[in-house]
Design a protein around this nucleic acid. Structure first.
Lengths: 242, 242
DNA sequence: ACAAATCATTACATTTTTATGACAAAAGTA
DNA sequence: TACTTTTGTCATAAAAATGTAATGATTTGT
């Protein structure tokens, strides 16, 4: 589906150039000359990404970014900063305000598009509401329930009780089964992009998930891939000893 | 078949953005800056759906919607209102005028498209007047009564006394059983869209509902799903492993 | 075998979320 | 009007979940 991008840039020529390129890349574009105008636009439409010129005439770029990060509705919208030259101060301020990426002017349109793609890729995947049935587990997002198929009596299923994070983690792992995820990827996609949490914390949640799954006789579904991360797999990667 | 959508919105940027999104989604789009203009457009072409900004400059949005509902030719056209979060009276007026759905600004274009789809498919089976019998409860919307089946003597049923809000809440939960609803969804669906009520208030009403149900021996029907919301369920989520 | 790196596990303090009772405003009734 | 019911909010208690650090186990490379 179309991605809506808000461009906040006071220089008309640059604004137009950017807008043109974004449109050509298949995006919907909203333009604002100032933070002021950007705010009023955001009052009406929620963009999927904001391209923000840091050197706005009224110098309210930082404030604008911060405002976006504060409000519940907008706090997860990725922000890419456009700066003339990265001054140390800008960088710090930008980080504090929660920018996701920087682009230094002048930049090539191709670079811009590439960065945008990269940032958008990091968004939380919109997990569908489809029931996932895998490895003897059945996860239903709409009822928020996980059941284990009883191997003896297929009609009987036991419910598995998971905490919110364990549920999301399992959902994600099952949705992207058989694929290894680094701790960083899991943090980005299960916890959310703008969280600062120790990588090791993922271990603990994996542990909790495993513990619960073990208690219902599902042992080897969540596997460790040493040096990389974790994986949900139905294939048994154990007794492959030669 | 192409669906024709009339967009009534005075802000040019937003109008254009919406129009572009709709076009991209494969719809025919008609645009109007004012209720005035919309009326004359409708005289020529009959749209399949109307997107109506409630805050038109001439403040004739309400009147416009009402007019649509009055005239035979247009009275069954679904109306989606675009509203700012603040105006509370709008809700009443909107309901009276017969809007089918609301979208509160700021909204994401994705959300907009999704809602349009939903309305067009007549997705939401408006709460019917059918009697719902579930988990030992019998709820009759027409008589506005709830009965509990007596487990001992099936012929005897006790009546449960619920307040208006509790009744609607239970009705909704039973109509969409087994599914988790966030507090926001419940506020939208049971209280009405964009009402200014604290999320936590839902807790209190759930509490009241539970209290009443407990008093007639129905304990685990209304369940908490931590981190998400509530659910009406016949399956017991208790004796679960884990 | 040894040291380094990586992962597992446990315990615990903190934070977040939910439950519950009380209260006053609002709405409805007599 | 006086009285009852309903309803939204708050304060606080209770419960659950979460992140981190510390420690132990396992693997890996040399």
């Amino acid at each position: 589906m179309a991605v809506t991008i808000l461009v906040v840039e006071d220089e008309p020529a640059i604004q137009e150039l950017i807008a043109l390129n974004l449109k050509r890349a298949g995006h919907m574009v909203l333009c604002a000359d100032s933070a002021q105008q950007a705010k009023s636009l955001i009052n009406n439409v929620l963009p999927d990404l904001v391209l923000l010129d840091w050197m706005l005439p009224d110098l309210t770029g930082i404030e604008f970014a911060r405002k976006l990060r504060q409000e519940e509705r907008t706090k997860s919208i990725p922000i890419i900063m456009l700066t003339a030259r990265i001054q140390e101060n800008d960088k710090i301020a930008g980080l504090e305000a929660g920018a996701d990426d920087y682009i230094t002017k002048p930049f090539s349109p191709r670079e811009l598009i590439a960065r945008i793609k990269a940032v958008l890729r990091r968004r939380l995947p919109e997990m569908s509401d489809e029931i996932i049935e895998l490895g003897g587990l059945r996860l239903d997002p709409t009822t928020h329930r996980v059941h284990v198929n009883n191997d003896v009596d297929p009609l009987k299923t036991a419910e598995v009780n998971l905490g919110p994070t364990e549920f999301r983690l399992l959902h994600y792992l099952m949705a992207y089964k058989e694929r290894v995820h680094t701790r960083g990827q899991l943090l980005d996609r299960v916890w959310g992009d703008h969280v600062f949490i120790e990588d090791r914390t993922v271990d603990v949640h994996i542990r909790r998930l495993r513990k619960i799954l073990e208690s219902v006789g599902k042992e080897n579904l969540v596997q460790t891939v040493r040096g990389t991360g974790y994986r949900f797999s139905v294939e048994c990667s154990e007794e492959s000893i030669g």
